[in-house]
Design a protein around this nucleic acid. Structure first.
Lengths: 150, 150
DNA sequence: TATTGATAGTCAATGATCGTGACTAAATTG
DNA sequence: CAATTTAGTCACGATCATTGACTATCAATA
């Protein structure tokens, strides 16, 4: 346990970020949204998004998205509108409260990143984030690439 | 959704790493261990560790550790030995199979990191990992520091 | 137009995982 | 020896993810 691997680090970082984000959101008037809801809220659009798109972007099953949307509707964050282009589909549209949550969540994340930027220096932090993006992208590409050559 | 924030990135990275790690472990003769078990296996020691220590290090409740250990005993990865220093406690000792899993898991992680090292360059990757450590440490320190000043 | 196959969303059932409270046995403290 | 703390377990309920099946609609085509 001298040097944690990137898996442990990524997990710890994600958890710590979630804690600060959702505790701060609770203080700012959104005590009822959880990380579970966040995975959906993060991909909303004022113009509306289909539930299937939300499932694809968040990487979760559409059944899970459905129950999350049930809760978000009940909590007043989104509404289900009929999609004029496709009568099977429903557009998930954020309410004013939903937009407020999204705005504040982004501001909180931005403030967190600025804090790390101040510690590391703008240039180094920019490099860090860019490398984090690349490592994440490359790691996610593993499955398509040389997966299960065994 | 132009640039994902570090929270989303950390989550995606962790998930992708878990997938490669446990699928590769399955191919190498350990198809029955899950990320759930991994959080305990990662902290084992050939000399034996107490369940309470495992709970503290992994950040999970001792009840959860208990059930995970039940499974790991059943799967033949660890045994519960009496602790000579404390008759209440039991030392969790990895079996040969457990040590094999730990060894292989570390090798897989090392290979993954080497792959990213080759892509980014050894120097840049070293810097990346060091910054990831620092950002994680600073983020985890948030709670103790200026939490809930609101 | 009728048919076939794919897609959007939901319902239902199951299993995995986590959290809480209570409990026994042993150590520790005074 | 009595009181408190600690190690581990048992039992219950809540949350969450995974799977399969189902209806309604769209899209393509004969």
């Amino acid at each position: 346990m001298t040097v944690p691997d990137i898996g442990v680090l990524a997990g710890q970082l994600m958890r710590a970020l979630q804690e600060e984000l959702f505790e701060t959101l609770a203080e700012l008037g959104h005590p009822d949204v959880s990380p579970r809801h966040g995975t959906v809220l993060a991909f909303l659009d004022p113009k509306g998004v289909r539930a299937t798109d939300l499932a694809a972007r968040s990487g979760q099953h559409k059944q899970i998205i459905g129950t999350i949307l049930d809760e978000l509707v009940r909590l007043g964050y989104v509404t289900r509108e009929p999609d004029p282009a496709d009568r099977r589909a429903k557009l998930i549209v954020p309410t004013e409260r939903g937009i407020d949550e999204i705005t504040k969540a982004r501001a909180i994340l931005a403030a967190i990143e600025e804090r790390h930027e101040r510690i590391l220096g703008a240039e180094r932090y920019a490099g860090f984030k860019q490398m984090l993006q690349q490592v994440t992208r490359d790691q996610r590409a593993w499955r398509q690439a040389g997966a299960s050559t065994a």
